[in-house]
Design a protein around this nucleic acid. Sequence first.
DNA 1: TAAACTAATTATAACAATTATAATTTAAGA
DNA 2: TCTTAAATTATAATTGTTATAATTAGTTTA
Lengths: 143, 143
Amino acid sequence: MNQLKEALETLKETGVRITPQRHAILEYLINSMSHPTADDIYKALEGKFPNMSVATVYNNLRVFREVGLVKELTYGDASARFDFVTTHHYHVICENCGKIVDFHYPGLDEVEQLASHVTGFKVNNHRLEIYGTCPECTSKEVH
Amino acid sequence: MNQLKEALETLKETGVRITPQRHAILEYLINSMSHPTADDIYKALEGKFPNMSVATVYNNLRVFREVGLVKELTYGDASARFDFVTTHHYHVICENCGKIVDFHYPGLDEVEQLASHVTGFKVNNHRLEIYGTCPECTSKEVH
DNA sequence: TAAACTAATTATAACAATTATAATTTAAGA
DNA sequence: TCTTAAATTATAATTGTTATAATTAGTTTA
Ligand SMILES: [Mn+2]
Ligand SMILES: [Mn+2]
Ligand SMILES: [Zn+2]
Ligand SMILES: [Zn+2]
């Protein structure tokens, strides 16, 4: 079963109406295989939906997040990026061009446990990102 | 030598003028022992500097960041928080009340190395945060 | 199938954090 | 003290995101 069908099934199960806009946003998220901003999505779909409001994109991304279909990646005052949820993974981010690359690594249970033990927090999850320079940007650097 | 004197020395060495506003912002950052927002600082100092502009706070926090005196912690569209740099450490954040607690852990070199190996990135650093509920909020929860 | 109900969309305004601008003031060296 | 570049101030602009209210459109019910 493909990802789009599964996602639509999830929406149906949780009582979220399937609208053409939602269908298109999901389709874009899955096919783009990237981490687009709300505006990326808005611009990519304006041909198909000339009247779509940017609020619709934001509203639906929130809905998708609430039902667990997407993850929102936030960075300071830069715009948030959205990741269609497949499996648990981390991100490596190029500080030069902003590229975001998926990166698998076994969960850092040990860190969570130590943090919980030291601070007394009830730990739910963590956020880990690696920053550096991507191969493309490295090769473009002046020597 | 205390932290404030050291910080002022750093500014002098890098040719950054020491103004009363900069002195006060640094003093507040060091004494508060917390992770204030620009607005926290602005409000805390408005008694001493009734005419200080919020732009001054932002400008100087940027200067301090550039010379390595503070780290900026960014979170989506919430306001950035500023951490006077002492030693390398991570943060445990309460999802209920927003409290940020310092947390020491040996650097995750292994993760950085694997990420670099798998993605081809030249890795510079990483960001790790633990999310959960603080002891205070846990005890206040309804049973 | 048609009517009714309610959620979703749209257009627009509002918001909040941050940055830009330009005039004024001031720290620090000569 | 004088000079000058840097810093501060007041204000406006910018940007990503959310709120509001009217309209439209899925879905359910009869
Ligand atoms: Mn991803
Ligand atoms: Mn800290
Ligand atoms: Zn790059
Ligand atoms: Zn708490």
